[in-house]
Design a protein around this nucleic acid. Structure first.
Lengths: 213, 213, 213, 213
DNA sequence: GATGAATGAGGATTCATTCAT
DNA sequence: CATGAATGAATCCTCATTCAT
C-alpha cells in the first residue's frame, strides 16, 4: 500500500514524534530508521526526503525536547507567582513530564546520541544549562524578594533542584516504573525548601503545618 | 606478532578494565569486542577464551562498578565516624570517583546495556538501590544519634544525597569535563546539611563558620 | 558496480536456484550467503531483502526440490497409462533428474541442513514419504488391475523402487559421475518387474523379449 | 585436572571412536575437534599430538567404517554357506549394523567429509565398491551353483541388494528412528529373492511357505 | 604427552544510506 | 513524494590450528 503523499513539514513532525516515542520505548540505541519509518507508515528510504540523515532526526528530537522542557518553565512563570511556589510547581511538572516522556532522560543520558558527534554533546549541554539558568533565574528572584536565603548560591541551588528529580528519574527508569517519582518529589520538596528558604519563611511554613494538624 | 601468553584471570581483569575505559571514552554503544581486544593487545577472537560472549564482559563491568561503588562506602565507614561527616566524605569520594570513572554514569544510563536483557536492568537497579540503602543506613544512624532530624525520611534523604552529585555528573559529562563537580559538591553540601541536620547541629555549625571568617 | 534492480520474486528464484547449484557443486555444508550472492550477482547483504535468513533460503530449496520431485510423478501419471509402465517411466525420469540435480541427494542426506532444526528433518521426511506414497499409489493401482501381484506389500515395493535408484545415485555421486545411473536403472528394472509383477505379465514379457532377440 | 598420559596408539583409537560416536549423534557437520577432545577427556590441542589435523581423524574414521563393513561380509562367509542364505544374513546384519552405527550413512552421505578433498570421495567410493564387489562375488557364486538365475547381472544385483537397505536407512534416519528398518528388510527380502533366484528355488521356497502356513 | 592462550580465516546479520523508477 | 532494490561498513562469534610451557 502506497502511503499518502504528505508535506515535508508534516512528515518531519511525524518522524520526530515517532522517533521520540520509539526512544521512550526502547532507548536511543535501538532507534532505527526502519523503526521510525514503520511507525510513520512510510518506507525507510522515504524518510530521506524529509531528513538528510539519521543524525538530523536526532537533532530534531533534541529540539523538540528542548521546546517541551522550556515550555514547562514558561507555563509555570505564567501561572504561578513567587519563587518558591514556582519551583514547587516546576518540580511537580517536571516529575510528571519525565514519567510521560521516558525519552527525555534516555536521550540526555544516552551515549548513542553523542557517538562521534561532539557538537551534539554541546547541544545537549546547552539545553540543560538553558533549563538550569531559568531555574537559577527563579532562585535569584527569590533571593531578591527575600523568600530565599541570601547565602544560597543560585547555580548550586538550581543544580540541586535538578538533583531532586534526576536520581528519582534514574531509579524510576531502572526499576521499570516501580519507583514512585511523584512521591519522592513530594517528600523531597520540604527538605529542599528548608535548605534554601529564609527563616521567616520556614517559620511561617512551620506554623502553617501546625495549624493543619 | 603473537601476544604474550597471559593467565585468564589477569586477562579477564585487563579486558574488563579496557571495556570500562572504552565505555568511559565512547559510551557503551560504541563498545566493541574488537576495540577491547585491541586495547588489551590481543586479537578479537582471543577474547573468547576469557569470556563466553560480549554480554558476559558487560556483566563483569557491572560487577566491577558495583565493587568500586560499595568499597567507597566501606572505606568511609572505616575511616570516618559520625553520620554527617561520613556523608560528607562519601559525597566527596563519590564526586572524585565519578570524575575518574566516566564510565559509571554512562553505564547506568545507557540503554545499550539493557537492550534485550531485562535482567541486566534489574542488576543495575540492584546496584543503585544497594548503594542507596547503605546511604540510608548512615542517615538512620544519624537520626538515632541525634545529629539528623527525626522528621527526615531516610530513603528520601538518600535519594537527595545522590541528587547532589548526579546532576553534576551529567553536567560534567555533557560539558566535556568543564563543569566543576567538586566545587558543586562543596557548595551543595552545606545546603544539604541544613535540610537534614538538627537545630543544635546547625547552630554549632553556624558558629564554627563565623569563627572561621 | 551496482547490480540491476530486479523484482523480489525473480531474485528469490535466482537465489534458490543458485543455492541449489552451489549445493550440487560443494554440498550443503559449504553453502554460504556470500557464495549465493556472488553467483546471483549481488552483494551478500542484498540477499536479506529477499530472504529473512539463511534458513529460509534452505527451506525454499527444499520446497523447490519437493516440487521437482512431485512434478515428475504428475507428468508420468499424465503421459503414461498402466502401473508398470508408469513405474518404469518414473524410474528413468528419476534417474535423469538425479543426474541433473546433484543437489537432491546431497540435501536429503546432508546433516548440515538439519543442524539444530528438527522440524527441517520432519520436512524432508515428509517430502520423501510424500513421494513414496505416490509410488505406493501406483503400485496399489497395479495390484487392482492385476498387473502387480497381490502378495506385494505396496509400501515395501515403493521403498524398493527407491532402492533401485538410490544406491546408484550414491555411487554416481561418490564416483564423480563415473557410475552410469541410467544403465543401472535399465538393468535393474526387469529384475524389479520380476519381483512384483504377476505371472501372466512375466510370461508375456518373457515372450516379448524372445521375439526381440 | 590433567589427563592421564596415554600412548598415541590408544589415544588414536579413543579419538576415532569418539569421532564416530559424535558423528552418529550429530552428523559430520557438527563434528568438532573440541567435541572429540571433550569426549576423550583431553584438551583440544592435545589431540594434535595424535593426529596431524582434523582431516586425518576423518580418514581414520573412514578406515574404521570400512573395517566394520567388511568384517560383516567376512563373518557371514564364515558362518553361513550358500549364496542366498549368505545374502539374507548379510542383509539382516547390515540392517542391524546401520541402526547401531548411525554414523555410517551419515559419513557416506555427508558432504562435509568431501569438502575440498576429492581424494576423500575416492576413498569412500572405494569402500562402497569394495563392499559391493564382495556382494557381487556372492552373487556370482550363486549363479555358478545354480541358486541364482543366469540372466542376473551380478553388479546390478549387488547394487539392488544395497537398494534394499539404503532407502530404508535414509527413512530411518530422517524419521528419527521411527521407520522400522528390520521389518522392511524382512519384507523386501522375499521380493528380492523372487527376482534373482532360479525357478526351482522359487518353487521350493514357495512350497516351504505353504507348509509353514 | 598435556595444557592453556593466541591466532586467523571465515560466516551470518544489521543498518544507514543511495538510486532508479 | 514514495517505493523497493542494492550497497558497504560494521559486528559478533566459531573453529581449526599453532606454540610456549
Amino acid at each position: 500500500m502506497r502511503a499518502q503523499k504528505t508535506e515535508t513539514e508534516v512528515r518531519q513532525e511525524q518522524i520526530v514524534t515517532a522517533a521520540l516515542e520509539l526512544i521512550g520505548a526502547q532507548g536511543v540505541n535501538a532507534l532505527s530508521i526502519a523503526g521510525i519509518a514503520e511507525r510513520v507508515g512510510i518506507v525507510p528510504s522515504a524518510l530521506y526526503r524529509h531528513f538528510k540523515c539519521k543524525d538530523d532526526v536526532l537533532d530534531a528530537v533534541l529540539d523538540l525536547l528542548k521546546a517541551r522542557l522550556l515550555s514547562n518553565v514558561t507555563q509555570v512563570r505564567k501561572e504561578t507567582p513567587g519563587a518558591l511556589p514556582r519551583l514547587k510547581s516546576l518540580l511537580m511538572r517536571h516529575a510528571r513530564m519525565l514519567s510521560e516522556n521516558r525519552a527525555i532522560p534516555l536521550v540526555v543520558f544516552s551515549d548513542g546520541i553523542y557517538a562521534g558527534r561532539p557538537e551534539r554533546k554541546a547541544k545537549v549541554a546547552a539545553i540543560i544549562t538553558g533549563y538550569l539558568s531559568k531555574i537559577q533565574h527563579i532562585v535569584e528572584e527569590g533571593i531578591q524578594d527575600g523568600s530565599i536565603r541570601k547565602d544560597v548560591v543560585p547555580v548550586t541551588a538550581s543544580v540541586m533542584f535538578l538533583g531532586m528529580i534526576l536520581p528519582a528519574a534514574v531509579l524510576w527508569n531502572v526499576s521499570e516504573g516501580n519507583f514512585d517519582m511523584n512521591a519522592h518529589a513530594e517528600n523531597a520538596w520540604p527538605a529542599f525548601v528548608r535548605c534554601i528558604s529564609t527563616e521567616e519563611h520556614n517559620i511561617k511554613s512551620y506554623m502553617k503545618t501546625c495549624e493543619e494538624t
